[in-house]
């Protein structure tokens, strides 16, 4: 019983962390029709930056500073690697994204010298608590609530603010949005800023559970979040969130069985099944790509 509770709690928590990354994938796809392969690595860089900043700065400064720098990184990546390719075929932009991904991994390798870096212990959220007899970290309990709060805030932004309406308009029709006076590049930048912000918050919640961060630390959670976004229906925010929770919970439950070794394989098998059976995912829009 205690074991089951603790597994489910960490599953929900892991799902929430994936959700924060998956939103970045799905929003960028919604607007640019681009799978931003560098997104998982932005998440990893957020972890690395946190480590370096926490050595010199108090946490209450280091965390906001890390979030701001991650947002800036996401913004700069878009401006430098994707914006110049706006008129290029979609495949070129995707290759550029893969390039950025490797660049960030190698940058992290260069900076850390290949040494695993110890993630700072964040008081309170790293504490252990006992709930229903199961011992777990505070972060595990906090994550789902924080994720839900952020998703609600994001939904309000997209549904009720001017920039939110513009984002939805741009996701359907670049040219007509321009005719309304929308600056497409501003909307795209805002999308990357939101995605990077959520990834930065997610990195704190995620890496707190692990002792170290290495240059490859972003690859796996990034891929899982990507699968979650596809599973939910890429382009759909509620889809990405629900997909992420399902994957997080399933993975953690499998880890608790004798088949633990297959937990990653499950996620990728799910990707294949979804792509074959229902390529648009749970909430994906039908492909009505009108000219």
């Amino acid at each position: 019983m205690e074991f089951a509770v603790s597994q489910i709690l960490s599953g929900i928590s892991l799902g929430g962390q994936y959700a924060l990354i998956a939103i970045g994938y799905t929003m960028v796809y919604g607007i640019l029709r681009l799978i931003n392969f560098a997104h998982g690595d932005v998440f990893m860089i957020a972890g690395i930056m946190m480590i370096y900043m926490a050595t010199t700065l108090p946490l209450y400064i280091a965390i906001p500073a890390m979030i701001i720098c991650t947002v800036l990184l996401g913004f700069l990546i878009e401006r430098a690697a994707y914006k110049p390719l706006r008129a290029a075929p979609r495949m070129s932009v995707m290759i550029s994204a893969i390039g950025v991904s490797y660049l960030l991994q190698n940058l992290a390798l260069y900076i850390t010298g290949g040494q695993p870096k110890t993630y700072p212990r964040i008081p309170w959220i790293s504490d252990t608590v006992t709930i229903f007899g199961a011992r777990t970290y505070v972060v595990t309990l906090v994550t789902p609530f924080l994720v839900i709060a952020l998703v609600v805030a994001l939904t309000l932004l997209i549904n009720h603010t001017k920039i939110g309406i513009a984002m939805r308009a741009v996701s359907k029709d670049f040219e007509t949005s321009q005719l309304m006076g929308v600056k497409i590049n501003t909307v795209i930048s805002v999308t990357f800023i939101i995605g990077s912000f959520l990834a930065a918050v997610g990195s704190v919640l995620y890496f707190t559970n692990y002792p170290t961060v290495v240059p490859m630390s972003g690859a796996m959670p990034g891929l899982k979040a990507f699968v979650a976004a596809v599973f939910g229906g890429i382009g759909s925010i509620p889809g990405a969130v629900i997909g992420a929770f399902i994957i997080g919970i399933c993975e953690t439950l499998i880890k608790g069985t004798d088949y633990a070794i297959f937990s990653d394989a499950f996620t990728f098998a799910l990707l294949i099944v979804i792509l074959v059976a229902k390529p648009t995912g749970i909430f994906g829009e039908k492909t009505t790509d009108k000219v």
Binding site: I165, A166, R168, A169, D173, T176, L179, M180, G181
Partner: peptide, 29 residues
């Protein structure tokens, strides 16, 4: 647009995923 010239594009091109009111709001962006 700001200087006072607006184009109603061919094929209408309303934003299908926005409500009528939101479409009008976009016009006044």
């Amino acid at each position: 647009v700001k200087s006072g010239v607006v184009l109603v594009p061919e094929g209408r091109r309303v934003f299908p995923n926005l409500t009528v009111k939101e479409n009008l709001k976009m016009g006044a962006y």
